[in-house]
Amino acid sequence: MTVRTFRRLAVYCGSASPADPRYVALARDVGGVLAQRGIGVVYGGGKRGLMGALADGALGAGGEVIGVIPEALANAEIANPACTELRVVTGMHARKQAFADLSDGFLTLPGGVGTMDELWEAASWSQLGYHAKPVGLLNAFGFFDHLLAFNRTMIDTGFVREAHAGILIADSSIEALLDRMAAHQPHTPVFAMSANQL
């Protein structure tokens, strides 16, 4: 079995700071773990909430942090000037393309609508064949239990093919999740399927 090495991972997470302090602490810890493993962080470029904690954790452990932020958000003064590199792009589509171009995989932490948008686009692009990178979901504190159950419902009803049932790699431990992502074997994407498989 081939095991991947990651130069960088795109990390999706919320810009909010929930009342429960475990979420911000989680993001900081994830940043530290990635840096300790020599994995750079590509993220949304913000300095608030889980985003800021993720960057702080990685930078504090000597890691590389590349922030990618749309002009409108950068102009609202929420960009993180502490990033190793801060890229200001025209909009959300350019931001997500940069995440894909700069990273060797996708890691999703708890977050809101924007985080879900990024997760599902990474999963959809994998299903179709726009990339063959692992898509990881850190299910800390059971945050994604209902999402994973819904994903199983989509598989069971036939809206997601069994060949693509393993696209979302979920674990409650960041260390275990990174190991599973490194061992990920690409599936057959839609673009490579014959008509009778669709």
Rank of each mutant, 00 (worst) to 15 (best):
F143T: 08
F106V: 02
V68D: 10
R37C: 03
H131S: 09
A122L: 02
L119P: 08
D101L: 09
A16V: 15
H131W: 02
I39F: 06
Q127R: 07
A16K: 15
L137T: 03
R95S: 02
A72F: 14
D117P: 13
V65M: 08
M92S: 12
D104W: 07
L50C: 13
L107F: 06
A94Q: 15
A53L: 11
A122V: 01
V41H: 13
Y12Q: 10
M92A: 05
L138H: 10
A100S: 11
N75A: 15
D117V: 08
R22L: 12
I66D: 06
A76K: 15
Y130R: 11
G38M: 04
V11Y: 11
L137E: 07
G142C: 05
A19T: 15
V65Q: 09
I69W: 08
F106I: 00
L147E: 02
P81A: 11
L137C: 00
M51G: 07
P134V: 05
E77A: 14
G111F: 06
G91S: 01
Q97L: 13
A53M: 01
D20F: 02
L86H: 04
R37W: 07
V41M: 14
F141A: 14
P21A: 11
E118R: 14
G40Q: 10
L34H: 04
V33C: 00
Y43F: 09
L107C: 11
Q127P: 10
W125D: 06
G38Y: 02
G114V: 00
L119F: 11
E64C: 06
A58C: 14
W125I: 00
L138N: 11
E121H: 02
G57W: 08
F144V: 02
R48M: 13
F143S: 07
L109G: 09
Y12D: 07
K96R: 12
Q97H: 13
S124N: 08
N80C: 10
A61I: 12
H131D: 09
A123D: 06
T90Q: 15
R48P: 00
N139D: 05
P21M: 07
G45F: 05
K133G: 07
A79T: 04
Y23D: 11
V41G: 12
K47P: 02
A132D: 15
W120Y: 15
P21I: 11
A100I: 01
K96E: 05
V113M: 15
G14S: 13
L59C: 04
L107T: 05
A19P: 00
G136A: 04
L34D: 03
L147S: 15
T84M: 04
V113K: 12
P70M: 03
G60Q: 10
D145N: 15
A122W: 06
V89Q: 10
H146N: 11
L109C: 06
Y12E: 00
V11H: 12
C13F: 12
L138I: 03
G40K: 09
A82M: 11
A98D: 12
I39D: 08
A74T: 03
A94S: 14
